[in-house]
Design a protein around this nucleic acid. Structure first.
Lengths: 197, 197
DNA sequence: TATGAATACGTACCACTGTACGCACTTGGT
DNA sequence: ACCAAGTGCGTACAGTGGTACGTATTCATA
């Protein structure tokens, strides 16, 4: 029974895109209906029409990144055939051609930060992480994949905190080599308890 | 020529403490003069008297953590005598007795996040990081220390995103062992270029 | 004790924000 | 051509926030 169709079918998508751009630039804190409306070139009324609540808009915008950003880093890892390939792909995802721009990292940081206090967004992040873990399946153990994940975020985070000093590639490479080598080493488990003051 | 003394000399410090607590609980976004005033049990007028701008209050509060939180993680690392000691100290700082509580990590995450857009706070973080790097001086190379730093933040960040699933100690230990071993290995530098699709 | 500067506080703006809501327009079926 | 449903938009409102500012209080000095 649906009559009437949208006169500007792209408007919704444009609002989502503008939302991501504003958040990458000014953070979630700087994302207001009015600011995003201006940035997207739509009137305020359009905002509340497509997205009745601001929270919903933000969550939807974050969710929309999953289909965009995900595949970009996935493919090289998925195509990896050897541990060396994996290290190459990881180094590249950290600082190379497939690595995110500073704006992308800023956005990703906003998502992670927002996810700390918003279960909806945390679920989105969980899905992304699950994908990332599945990617290296068969090449490294699950816990090594988790470790790699942690370090990758650590490096990205470092880039964000030091935008002007590029990361040394050799250093990054050695770090991933060391982690990827863990599962191959079949490392003896240290059972000794930690001792400290 | 200073006459008049504060009737409540601790007030300023109490406001700073309350600020940190509110931020750890609700984030910087949830930190308002009025909210902090209520939490600290002081009237609104006291807030603006000691801290004319909210931004200044937040920066001062963050800065005040340097003397509190810093030493806690420093000591075990400083006392480390061998690579094994370092690994022990790092594992402990990640998930053990000297590791930060979730609230502490939340606060630290807020500081890092705020630092992305506020140079004042970025400088505070830089100072903390410099301390951390100096701590392992003599035991591992500078770039290894940087790598360890990145992973430590990665692990803390992971704890924040997965508050209910404790990190596996053996996994964490292996990860730091692998990184600490880098400098000992005197690893050959790979000069081959990365190749990818 | 008298004084004035520093301290402390209550209140009042003013800007901004999310959201509600009513009106106008577009569209496709009758 | 007419109509109803979906689309698009301007405005208003209530709440909250940072900040300014005038007044009261305290206390070392004279």
């Amino acid at each position: 029974m649906r009559r009437g169709k949208p006169n500007d079918p792209d408007r919704r998508a444009r609002i989502l895109q503008a939302t991501l751009e504003v958040i990458a630039a000014d953070g979630v804190a700087g994302a207001s209906y009015r600011g995003i409306a201006t940035h997207a070139g739509v009137p305020l009324g359009s905002m509340t029409y497509y997205f009745p609540t601001l929270e919903g808009l933000i969550v939807d915008a974050f969710d929309s990144t999953r289909s965009h950003l995900g595949p970009r880093y996935d493919t090289p890892l998925r195509n990896a055939r050897s541990p060396e390939d994996i290290v190459d792909a990881l180094v590249d995802a950290t600082i190379g051609a497939t690595s995110p721009t500073l704006d992308d990292i800023r956005l990703y940081a906003e998502i992670r930060h927002y996810g700390i206090r918003h279960p909806d967004v945390a679920a989105v992040l969980q899905a992304v992480e699950d994908d990332a873990l599945a990617m290296t399946h068969g090449h490294v153990s699950n816990s090594t994949a988790l470790t790699i994940n942690a370090l990758l975020w650590g490096w990205w985070s470092h880039r964000l905190a030091h935008p002007d000093t590029p990361l040394d590639e050799a250093m990054v490479r050695r770090s991933f080599e060391a982690l990827v080598a863990i599962h191959a080493t079949d490392h003896p488990v240290h059972t000794k308890e930690q001792i400290h003051v």
